[in-house]
Simulated scan of single mutants.
Amino acid sequence: MATVLLVRHGRTTANASGLLAGRTPGVALDETGVEQAARTGERLSDVPLVGVVSSPLQRCRQTAQAILDEQSGAAALSIDDGISECDYGDWQGRSLADLTQEPLWSVVQNQPSAVTFPGGESMPTMQSRAITAVRENDAAFEAEHGAGAVWAAVSHGDIIKAVLADALGMHLDLFQRIAVNPASVSIVQYSSARPTVVSMNTDAGDLSWLSSTEAPPAEAPVGGGTGPSA
Rank of each mutant, 00 (worst) to 15 (best):
Pro182Ser: 08
His171Ala: 14
Gln176Ser: 15
Leu172Met: 12
Ile187Cys: 14
Lys161Leu: 00
Ala162Pro: 05
Gly169Leu: 03
Val180Cys: 13
Asp166Pro: 01
Ala162Val: 04
Gly169Ala: 07
Pro182Asp: 05
Val185Arg: 04
Ile187Lys: 11
Pro182Val: 02
Ala162Trp: 00
Ile178Gly: 13
His156Leu: 03
Leu172Thr: 14
Ile178His: 12
Ser184Cys: 13
Gly157Phe: 01
Pro182Thr: 05
Ala179Glu: 12
Asp158Ile: 03
Ala167Thr: 00
Asp166Trp: 01
Ala183Arg: 07
Met170Val: 06
Ile159Trp: 02
Ser184Thr: 04
Ser184Trp: 03
Ser184Arg: 04
Arg177Met: 10
Ile160Gln: 01
Lys161Cys: 01
Lys161Pro: 02
Lys161Glu: 01
Gln189Asp: 10
Ala162His: 01
Gln189Ala: 13
Leu174Thr: 14
Val180Ile: 14
Ser184Phe: 04
Arg177Asp: 10
Arg177Val: 07
Val185Met: 08
Val163Gly: 00
Gly169Asn: 09
Ala167Ser: 10
Val188Thr: 13
Gln176Asp: 12
Ser155Gly: 11
Asn181Phe: 10
Asn181Pro: 08
Ile160Ser: 01
Gly169Lys: 06
Ile178Ser: 13
Ile160Cys: 05
Gln189His: 09
Ala167Glu: 01
Leu172His: 06
Ser184Gly: 10
Phe175Cys: 15
Asp166His: 03
Ala165Gln: 04
Asp173Ile: 08
Phe175Arg: 15
Pro182Arg: 04
Met170His: 08
Leu172Arg: 09
Leu168Pro: 05
Leu172Ala: 12
Ala167Gly: 04
Ile178Val: 07
Ile178Cys: 13
Leu168His: 03
Gly169Tyr: 01
Gln189Thr: 15
Leu168Asp: 06
Ser155Glu: 03
Pro182His: 05
Leu174Glu: 14
Ala165Trp: 00
Pro182Ala: 10
Arg177Tyr: 08
Ile159Arg: 05
Met170Gln: 12
Ala167Val: 02
Pro182Gln: 05
Ser184Val: 04
Gly157Pro: 10
Phe175Met: 15
Ile178Gln: 12
Asp173His: 07
Val180Thr: 07
Ile160Gly: 02
Val188Phe: 03
His171Lys: 13
Ile178Glu: 09
Ala183Asn: 05
Ser155Val: 02
Met170Arg: 12
Ile187Glu: 13
Leu172Phe: 03
Asn181Lys: 12
Arg177Gln: 13
Lys161Gln: 04
Ile160His: 02
Ile160Asn: 02
Ser186Met: 07
Ser184Glu: 05
Ser186Asn: 11
Leu164Ile: 11
Asn181Ile: 01
Phe175Gln: 15
Leu168Glu: 06
Asp173Leu: 09
Ile187Asn: 06
Ala179Val: 06
Val163Met: 00
Leu174His: 15
Ala183Gly: 11
Gly157Ser: 08
Gly169Glu: 09
Ile159Ser: 09
Asn181Ala: 15
Asp173Arg: 05
Gln176Met: 14
Ile159Ala: 09
Met170Cys: 09
Val185Lys: 06
Gly157Ile: 02
Leu168Ser: 06
Ser186Leu: 10
Val185Glu: 07
Ile160Arg: 00
Lys161Tyr: 02
Ala179Gln: 09
